Simulated assay, not measured.
Amino acid sequence: MRVMVIIKATPESEAGQMPSTELIAAMGKYNEELVTAGVMQGGDGLKPSSAGARVRFSGQDRTVIDGPFAETKELIAGYWIWQVQSMAEAIEWVRRCPNPMTSDSEIEIRPFFEPADFGEAFTPELQEEEKRLRQQIDAQTR
């Protein structure tokens, strides 16, 4: 199963506080363990919400809202994409993670939808179209 592992923002990350050399090294070692185990498929840190924007949808209207955003607990500071056998395996990997922040922090794990989750609505034609798009994405990122 594929999961997104979401590193929640903290007041420090939203203030733009950069990690120490020690934390960068510890996270690099952890990422190497994930890659060696065949778990990590991708991941990155994110700049504070002050560098971002949101687009609010209301019917046909679109409203752009520039950051920063007030609710730090609802923001993310980084993510990984992992391929694991189960949620239990993902949890065990997260338990081994160095604290990614200088203060208390939280990491959320969310499974991706798989084609079977959509049932009959995800027709063979739609599955082929998604496969084609994923192949195109893969070719562009090489």
Results as ranks from 00 to 15, higher is better:
Leu133Ala: 11
Ser86Gly: 07
Ala25Gly: 04
Pro11Met: 08
Gly119His: 02
Gln85Leu: 02
Thr63Trp: 02
Arg2Asp: 09
Leu126Asn: 14
Ile107Ala: 04
Asn31Cys: 08
Ile91Phe: 06
Asp117Trp: 02
Val39Cys: 01
Trp93Ala: 10
Gly52Ile: 08
Val55Asp: 07
Glu125Tyr: 03
Ile76Trp: 07
Ile81Ala: 01
Ala139Cys: 09
Glu32Ser: 13
Val55Pro: 03
Gly119Tyr: 00
Asp44Cys: 05
Leu46Gln: 05
Gly28Gln: 11
Glu125Ala: 14
Asn99Trp: 10
Thr123Gln: 03
Val94Thr: 10
Glu14Gln: 15
Val3Gln: 03
Met1Leu: 10
Glu89Trp: 03
Ser49Tyr: 11
Ala70Ser: 12
Leu34Arg: 04
Ala70Asn: 14
Glu92Val: 05
Ser103His: 09
Thr63Pro: 01
Thr123Met: 08
Phe122Gly: 00
Arg96Ile: 09
Val35Tyr: 13
Pro100Gly: 01
Gln136Phe: 10
Phe57Leu: 15
Asp44Gly: 14
Ser105Ile: 00
Glu14Thr: 00
Pro115His: 08
Ala70Thr: 15
Ala121Asp: 10
Gly119Lys: 02
Arg134Cys: 12
Gly59Gln: 02
Ile24Met: 15
Thr123Ser: 13
Lys29Gln: 14
Arg56Thr: 06
Glu114Ser: 13
Pro98Leu: 13
Asp117Phe: 09
Thr72Gln: 06
Glu74Gln: 09
Phe113Gly: 02
Met87Ala: 04
Met40Leu: 15
Ile137Met: 15
Pro48Arg: 09
Gln17Asn: 05
Glu106Asp: 06
Asn31Leu: 09
Glu108Lys: 04
Ala51Val: 12
Ser49Ile: 11
Arg62Leu: 13
Asp61Met: 13
Leu133Ser: 05
Ser49Cys: 07
Gly16Arg: 04
Met101Gly: 05
Lys131Val: 06
Arg134Glu: 12
Pro11Asn: 02
Tyr79Val: 11
Ile65Phe: 07
Trp80Thr: 02
Pro48Phe: 05
Glu74Leu: 14
Lys131Ala: 15
Gln41Ile: 10
Arg134Val: 13
Val84Asp: 07
Glu125Asn: 02
Phe112Met: 06
Ile65Trp: 03
Ala9Met: 06
Gln83Met: 08
Gln85Glu: 15
Gly52Phe: 04
Arg110Ala: 07
Val3Tyr: 11
Thr72Met: 10
Glu89Leu: 04
Ile24Gly: 00
Ala25Thr: 14
Ala25Gln: 14
Ile76Pro: 00
Arg54Val: 06
Gly28Glu: 10
Pro115Phe: 09
Gln17Asp: 03
Arg110Lys: 14
Thr63Val: 14
Ile137Cys: 04
Ile24Tyr: 09
Glu114Cys: 05
Met18Tyr: 09
Met18Leu: 15
Ser49Trp: 11
Met18Ile: 04
Arg54Cys: 02
Gln85Lys: 15
Ser50Arg: 12
Ala15Asn: 01
